[in-house]
Design a protein around this nucleic acid. Structure first.
Lengths: 245, 245
DNA sequence: ACAGGCCTGTGAAGCCATTCACATCGGCCT
DNA sequence: AGGCCGATGTGAATGGCTTCACAGGCCTGT
């Protein structure tokens, strides 16, 4: 289950190009951190490049590192013994993941795999925890990060328990389109991936999307979805459940 | 939606009896905190007593306080427009809740109601945040708390997406029985409440429990469930899904 | 001790989503 | 161009869970 973790084999700390770090620097979590604290944080980092499909870590592994995505996207997912699997989150360039195991020192709660070719920075727990203790601002940043994650995850529980297919799909689309604002309303994702994010089958997702496409609420492209009627989908989520006809 | 929050109307800080505080003091989160830090934490607290069924706060309220349960239990839940509702957590004496809104200053993510008559301590954000900043140990404690919550909530997402009724019910029973170790294997809870915790109907839950009772895996009492075959239920969860016959 | 309210137990009917089984399309590699 | 593979599109059959409709049990208040 565990397999070789490619991260552990990374060669020693190289020099970092400033444009790579700037992706992180721009992120809300680090933007208003003191420059010297940020620099010191980066001093603990190791650089890695991964090919699409590579396992970064698996659920249950002893997790001792925080990982920042410089380019590409990472898939956080879990899978059941009978082969079904669920995507919990997609981490994009400029975001970080693996913070839970880093901060509490316990095992990883999910699998992480490179969803595209990726460039990553890896920060190890051993040197990191004392640093956090000494930097109240950084600790508060992590508290904020954890709060945000908790809000998102609670939301997910809410969706999955209270909403049916249309509601869940709509709210997944809205969330994804919020995240990809720069690309306009186009979401680059396969229907297979969406189905694993909302926890229903690809076929069901496809039929619902098609129905919405006919009504002009979305447009389907190959490997992408364009949200046309944002408000309508939002209403559908708020209304609770049943499809709007 | 909001309604009068009984907490805001609490009269000024009274003197606290030490035996009440001792419930908190014993909790893992505070046990190894410096005594003076703990005392100062308590200085910010207000004491309140609530009757069963009272709303403590509602989803969407501006949340500015952390609440500790001295006695009784508090239900954290959410509800959909069409009347369905889901229990996210039951907070018992010695535990705290409401930490997300306290720490990030945003609105409450769920409803909280007194599930029994309760005694609570309420700590306000205004005076609390600067205090956390100045106490790295306390900040680390909250980071641990948030990590634990996040693990639990992620687990819930995993359960709800990947498991069917038997799996979800079994894992809910196991979790509840872990929490109530002192009472042996008896879980005091109604089937209605369990159904709202696992996100399925009371009727379905009842039928499954009955089937397990016949096989001798559990025993049903009025308002309680006794887990008899812990291992069998655990296997059922691990196996993935389908009922053990 | 009786009434009313929550809790439990159970069957029949229906429905939403899954499962299964294909057909088609597009892109990429050789 | 041909071939392949991953992604999309769709219908029919199946099934797990819900919905609905009651019946009985246990506890509590008066």
């Amino acid at each position: 289950m565990t397999g070789a973790s490619p991260i552990e084999r990374t060669s020693g700390a190289p020099l970092f190009s400033n444009n790579k770090l700037s992706v992180l620097r721009k992120h809300p979590y680090f933007a208003d951190l003191e420059p010297e604290a940020f620099d010191q944080l980066c001093r603990y980092a190791k650089h890695t490049t991964l090919k699409r499909g590579t396992t970064i870590f698996s659920k249950g592994d002893p997790g001792t590192s925080l990982i920042a995505v410089i380019s590409g996207t990472v898939k956080i997912s879990i899978s059941s013994p009978d082969g079904r699997n669920a995507i919990l989150n997609l981490i994009e360039a400029g975001e970080i993941f693996g913070e839970i195991a880093l901060l509490d020192g316990l095992s990883r709660t999910a699998d992480a795999t490179a969803n595209t070719n990726c460039e990553l920075f890896v920060i190890d727990r051993r040197e990191f925890i004392p640093f956090v203790r000494s930097q109240p601002t950084l600790a508060m940043k992590f508290i904020e990060l954890l709060c945000e994650r908790l809000r998102r995850t609670s939301d997910q529980v809410e969706q999955v328990i209270l909403q049916n297919l249309p509601g869940r799909l709509a709210s997944a689309l809205l969330r994804l389109s919020d995240k990809h604002k720069p690309q306009g309303r186009t979401i680059s994702i396969t229907q297979q991936e969406i189905s694993e994010m909302v926890g229903m089958t690809r076929e069901s997702i496809n039929k619902q999307l098609r129905a919405w496409a006919i009504r002009g609420w979305v447009r389907l492209e190959h490997g992408a979805i364009v949200v046309l009627k944002r408000e309508t989908l939002q209403e559908l989520v708020d209304a609770g459940a049943n499809d709007g006809e």
